[in-house]
Design a protein around this nucleic acid. Structure first.
Lengths: 386, 386
DNA sequence: AAACTTTGTTTAACCAATATACAAAGTCAG
DNA sequence: CTGACTTTGTATATTGGTTAAACAAAGTTT
């Protein structure tokens, strides 16, 4: 958008700074906010008064004195409104009702019996309506809905392609916005997961993060400078189709040797796996009981995960890598080979700073992240770069 | 940096907007600037007066009337100062003296007889001093020096590692700043090339650009949102060591199957190439005369380039890819196989929008880009994101 | 020649941040 | 308990930027 400077912008910037400072550090006093942000005490007082008027900030009682008048502590009012975060999976629709601080108020879980869009949309509307009915009364009510989808999503919230659902070119955002008259954000499942980890999980306050969602395929959520990077048309992060064997196995995408053929649940189909395991959960059970074949398989997947992760490290130089998705449940078996291969193959300078973690939010990461997108959309976030 | 909003910031933002508008569209009238930026006519008048006082903008004569008073055309004063852009290569030091608009005023070219840092530094100082001596008189004089280096550079301008020079941990920026008392920017060679293409070459006004420098190795300059992305520690874009054959040839980096072993000038050494060619220039000469072996070799390199480019497209979803570096001279032979492989292997949705071009600036791209970094550092650039 | 257009400047008003002074509410030493 | 000091938060006047509106200057069109 075309932005120019005027006093309204100044006010927006400072109000945003103050609100997010209170959100991150509450409870906190006006004086502390002034000190941390560099804004004048009077400015903070004025804007906090407005924020209180908007019910986004509340005054709690006095805090501990540090040798003078007791400070009046401010809280971010997470209960000023609520958001709905949804994860759409192949066989399941999971959703949470969150407050503005990311706290889970309600959680629902519907089975999906089919994939056709009309049916799924109906279920989606139902789960949303059910959660809206459960929402506690609040000044702003439901302020947004966020959805994480297993497929490519463009910048306008159109689902371009979701192979596992058989969807193509579905303007999910407009449909839901028209149904519920609330801002809706649609994100790729990995992108939503990345936002979840960034704000509530393993990656708080990381500036450059790579979230790798490994499950039935592999997708990545890329956080650059604290913000989601979506690419030119919205489908950055399709890393599962990165070639790691130039003349490797043919892939359904038309290419060969794609990463996800070697390091995702797709290996359960086409490898000569002798065990009766078609899901990660089953394979984890076998591995836990010491089954040789399962252990070998996880070891191989971990190594291949490491190869792809190394490629991404060399390209992005992130501070932190978080492995999420269904495969994160197999951390005890994947972690060692993955880290070993990364250590072997990565350039020496990367080794010093880089950390690799597995998801802390588990299977809830995507829907929490989707909900958080909606929260940020509501609160707004202005940033100035010099 | 901690930025808050106040009137000084507003003024900086608007002045920056106006200056860059004039820079991009000059000659242009105050009225036009006001219309394009959305700023009030009075605001534009005031700030333009200041910019004229700073000699960054000049008033040229009147322009064509469009049915009313003739506009007074404004020009960006590219001659207000000059910058020096340097490319450090293995056997050569090339440098340009540019005006603030990127126009080349002088060009020098020194042979390097050795790689040890003291010697190279001496030559560098000499080439800088020589260009300074040639600089035309101007209000600001030399306002900055930019250097493109074949290696990894951290965020503070320290050369972490330059394998082809045998350098490690050299604080080039501080050394040059102390010698010449002028702001110095040090960039990876690919990053500088990307900036060059972005501002003067094939990629003007592209928001998400991938510049691939293919020569003795492969490196990438990543432009995200119109700005160079350097990663957490400054060495994003080391894509040459992306694995494209999991169990491929061993690489000096310690890994295996690295992209640059198959798609850079490194192939001239270790392939069973029967021809007496050790440089791209020689191989191009052979290809031009229809030599079978050379044609086959380029075809193979083009295909492997395509594999790596596909991987990067899937990760970054850029608008445009520019192939630069020494291999860009072989465009007639590399172009077809590269584009063919990308078309075969890339996901269907990428195909629609993506463009792949070869460098327009040729061998000058890096030094021009390095110089441009210095220009932008001098002019400043504030941006507000909502 | 009169009416209209376009460009650029002048004027007064507005408004957000700020420095400064100040009021309120505490601590601490003796 | 008292007086000096600290810390928190508010009130006031000032500063300095953008802006709308009026205006002046310079062309064009009919």
């Amino acid at each position: 958008m075309k932005v120019t400077g005027d006093q309204a912008l100044v006010k927006k910037i400072n109000k945003s700074i103050i609100l997010h400072t209170i959100r991150m550090f509450s409870p906190v006093s006006r004086a502390k906010v002034s000190e941390m942000t560099g804004l004048n005490k009077a400015t903070v007082s004025n804007l906090v008064a407005e924020l209180c008027g908007q019910e986004l900030v509340t005054e709690a009682g006095p805090g501990e004195s540090s040798g003078g008048r007791k400070p009046l502590m401010l809280h971010f009012n997470a209960m000023a409104g609520s958001v709905i975060g949804i994860e759409l999976r192949v066989k399941q629709l999971t959703a949470v009702l969150c407050d503005l601080g990311g706290g889970i108020l309600q959680e629902l879980d519907y089975r999906l019996e089919a994939h056709d869009f009309p049916y799924v949309l109906e279920q989606m509307k139902r789960i949303i309506a059910d959660l809206i009915a459960m929402a506690p009364p609040s000044p702003y009510g439901i302020v947004g809905i966020g959805v994480g989808v297993p497929g490519m999503v463009d910048e306008h919230g159109v689902v371009l392609f979701a192979p596992n659902l058989g969807w193509e070119m579905i303007d999910l955002r407009s449909i839901l916005e028209n149904s519920f008259s609330v801002p809706v954000t649609i994100d790729n499942e990995a992108n939503a997961g990345a936002q979840g980890e960034l704000n509530f999980g393993a990656a708080r306050d990381v500036r450059h993060l790579l979230y790798i969602s490994a499950g039935s395929g592999i997708g990545s959520g890329i956080i650059i400078g604290g913000e989601l990077y979506k690419g030119a048309r919205g489908y950055a992060g399709e890393t599962g189709h990165m070639t790691i064997e130039a003349e490797g196995k043919p892939c359904s995408c038309g290419s060969r040797g794609c990463w996800e053929l070697y390091a995702s649940e797709k290996t359960y189909d086409n490898s000569g796996l002798t065990l009766p395991a078609r899901t990660t959960r089953e394979l984890v059970r076998h591995a836990r009981s010491g089954q040789e074949d399962a252990l070998r398989h996880f070891s191989s997947m971990g190594e291949y995960l490491g190869i792809g992760v190394t490629n991404l490290i060399n390209s992005f130089n992130p501070e932190l890598i978080v492995i999420g998705g269904a495969l994160s449940e197999a951390e005890p078996w994947l972690g060692e080979p993955l880290r070993r291969v990364v250590a072997e193959r990565t350039l020496p300078y990367h080794k010093q700073q880089l950390e690799i973690t597995f998801s802390k939010l588990g299977s809830r990461g995507t829907m929490i992240g989707a909900g958080f997108s909606a929260v940020m959309h509501f609160l707004g976030n202005i940033r100035v770069t010099l």
